[in-house]
Amino acid sequence: MIILVGYATIEGQTRKIAEAIAANIEAAGDRALLFDITSGAEYALGHPEAAILCAPVHAARYPHAFASFVRQEASWLNGVPSAFVSVSMLIRSEFEEEQEEATHFPDGLLAETGWKPARVHHAAGALRYTEYDFFKRWIIRRMAEHENAPTDVSRDHEFTDWVALKAFVDDVLTLAKA
């Protein structure tokens, strides 16, 4: 089975998540087509038999290029087993209302595009302090203090639950082969 693993990334964690998904697919004996939706490259992969798309949430929105791609491909995505991985930091918040908010981020995207993925997984992202400029590092550190998240700006902090992500991929593969 050939499975499209399409992703949009801003700071790199969603790409890392998509790469892990592709590796899990390949380890299960299927073929993964890893595609950076925001690269501007022409989508010329044909129509694989299934799809897992991944995108980060920033300021309560997914990247415009990602939403455009999903809107353009919604008919095909709805015709094959498909799944969505929404990447946000709020999903790991200690505040239940913020976690609840994060679980609803996909709602707007799905309503806007008409896509109906069979499964949605919420993955926590990362704080990439070492890659931020001074201003962004200062802002993110202040936000992290509010969330009781790590504030050591001398290193990056990753929160993705790789075991849960693998279980999600296994579930999607089972669904796709049913």
Results as ranks from 00 to 15, higher is better:
Thr151Ile: 12
Ile3Cys: 08
Ser86Tyr: 03
Ile10Ser: 06
Gly6Asp: 04
Gln99Ile: 04
Arg71Gln: 14
Trp115Thr: 01
Ala23Gly: 05
Arg119Val: 00
Glu145Asp: 13
Asp133Val: 05
Thr38Gly: 10
His64Cys: 07
Ile2Asn: 12
Thr151Glu: 11
Thr113Glu: 02
Thr103Gln: 15
Asp152Val: 01
Glu11Trp: 08
Thr160Ala: 01
Pro81Gly: 04
Glu112Trp: 00
Ala20Leu: 09
Pro48Trp: 05
Ala167Asp: 15
Gln13Thr: 13
Gly29Thr: 08
Gly125Ile: 04
Asp156Ile: 03
Ala44Lys: 10
Val169Ala: 10
Ala126Gln: 10
Phe66Gly: 04
Glu19Gly: 03
Ile37Gln: 05
Ser93Tyr: 04
Val80Arg: 00
Phe134Pro: 01
Asp170Ile: 02
Ala44Gln: 06
Ile3Glu: 02
Arg128Leu: 11
Asp36Lys: 07
Glu145Pro: 13
Ala144Asn: 13
Ala123Trp: 02
Leu173Ala: 07
His58Ala: 07
Arg61Asp: 09
Phe69Gly: 09
Val172Pro: 07
Ala123Glu: 14
Leu175His: 15
Ser88Cys: 14
Gly6Phe: 02
His58Phe: 07
His121Asn: 14
Asn78Phe: 11
Glu11Asp: 11
Val153Lys: 07
Ala27Gly: 06
Phe35Ile: 08
Pro63His: 06
Thr9Met: 07
Ala111Phe: 04
Arg128Asp: 11
Ala67Thr: 15
His58Asp: 03
Val120Gly: 03
Trp76Pro: 06
Leu34Gly: 02
Arg71Ser: 11
Ile91Lys: 00
Asn24Leu: 06
Leu33Lys: 14
Ile3Met: 15
His146Met: 14
Ala41Thr: 05
Trp138Tyr: 14
Leu4Val: 06
Gln99Cys: 06
Leu110Gly: 11
Glu42Gly: 03
Val120Thr: 14
Met1Lys: 00
Ala32His: 12
His47Gln: 13
Leu53Trp: 09
Thr14Met: 02
Pro117Trp: 08
Ile52Val: 03
Glu101Thr: 02
Ile21Met: 12
Glu131Tyr: 06
Val120Gln: 12
Glu19His: 05
Met143Cys: 11
Ala149Ser: 06
Ser88Leu: 07
His146Asn: 15
Arg15Asn: 12
Ile17Phe: 01
Ser154Tyr: 05
Ala51Pro: 02
Ala178His: 10
Ser82Met: 09
Ala41Met: 09
Arg141Ile: 00
Ser82Asp: 13
Tyr7Pro: 00
Glu19Phe: 05
Val120Ser: 09
Pro117Met: 05
His122Gly: 03
His146Trp: 11
Trp138Cys: 12
Pro117Leu: 06
Ala8Val: 01
Glu100Gly: 00
Ile25Glu: 12
Gly114Glu: 06
Met89Asn: 05
Thr9Ile: 12
Ser68Val: 02
Pro81Val: 11
Ala74His: 01
Phe84His: 10
Ala167Gln: 15
Glu147His: 12
Thr113Asp: 00
Asn24Gln: 13
Thr130Lys: 06
Asp30Gly: 09
Pro56Ile: 07
